Amino acid sequence: MPGVERAMKRTEPRRVPRPVEGAPGLVEVDATWGTIQPMTVASGVRTVGEAEVIEHLEQGLPMVDSRGRDSYEESTIPGATNVHFKETAARLGELDREAPTVFFCNGPQCGQSPAAIQALIEAGHSPEKILYYRGGLHDWMTLGLPVASDDTSPGGEPS
């Protein structure tokens, strides 16, 4: 972005907010990594916020965490399954093509779910069945919403 400078990147960025020890409800955020993603990732794909994600989960609809396995195992949105963004097209058959599915990654500066969505569309998946949660785990955690580790998430089957 011309004329807008972000904080200098750290050598070892922390891509997911972490709780501040001894201060329930407080999280530490590293704002030095990634590339800011657009609100709209592809024509026909709807960008959603937390209220829509919560409603989606309450309806038992699918959510996909597009991050790597290690990140997913550390923390994810409860109920999400893991399909690494680089494997999305190859694992298209595992997705319910009729159900609207939310895709997310680390947050507004992470390109993993946009890459997964692009791969899905190129593989013939209907963009109207794809929902993009741009805020990702970053915004989810900063709003104090619950997270799960792989062993506590209903979608925690190995990928």
Rank of each mutant, 00 (worst) to 15 (best):
V4K: 10
V4R: 11
V4Q: 11
E5R: 07
E5W: 07
R6Q: 14
R6T: 13
M8S: 11
K9V: 15
R10S: 15
E12N: 14
P13T: 13
R14N: 15
P17C: 03
P19W: 09
P19I: 09
E21L: 09
E21G: 07
G22I: 10
G22W: 11
A23I: 06
L26V: 08
V27D: 05
E28V: 07
V29S: 14
D30A: 05
A31Q: 10
A31E: 14
W33I: 09
G34F: 06
T35P: 08
Q37K: 05
V41H: 07
A42H: 12
S43I: 06
S43E: 10
G44I: 05
V45F: 07
T47R: 05
V48D: 11
E50N: 01
V53N: 11
I54Y: 02
E55Y: 01
H56W: 01
H56I: 05
L57G: 02
L57K: 08
E58V: 08
E58Q: 14
E58M: 09
Q59L: 02
G60N: 03
L61M: 07
M63V: 01
V64T: 08
R67E: 14
G68Q: 04
R69V: 00
Y72Q: 00
Y72R: 05
E73R: 01
E73I: 01
E74I: 02
E74Q: 03
S75M: 04
G79E: 04
G79D: 02
G79I: 04
A80D: 03
A80L: 06
A80F: 02
N82L: 04
N82W: 03
N82Y: 01
N82G: 01
N82C: 00
V83M: 04
H84R: 07
F85Y: 14
K86T: 08
A89W: 03
A90P: 03
R91N: 08
R91C: 07
L92C: 00
E94A: 07
L95W: 03
D96P: 04
R97I: 01
R97D: 09
R97F: 01
R97Q: 04
A99I: 00
P100Y: 04
T101N: 02
C105W: 11
G107A: 10
Q109Y: 15
Q109R: 15
C110W: 12
G111E: 09
G111P: 11
Q112F: 12
S113G: 12
P114K: 14
A115M: 15
A115W: 12
Q118S: 13
A119S: 15
I121D: 13
I121M: 12
E122N: 14
E122L: 12
H125R: 13
P127Q: 06
K129R: 11
I130V: 12
L131G: 06
L131S: 05
Y133E: 12
L137C: 10
D139K: 11
W140I: 03
W140D: 05
T142D: 10
L143K: 15
G144R: 01
P146V: 08
V147K: 06
A148I: 05
S149V: 02
D150G: 14
D151L: 06
D151M: 03
T152M: 08
S153H: 06
S153T: 12
P154C: 01
E157I: 00
S159P: 05
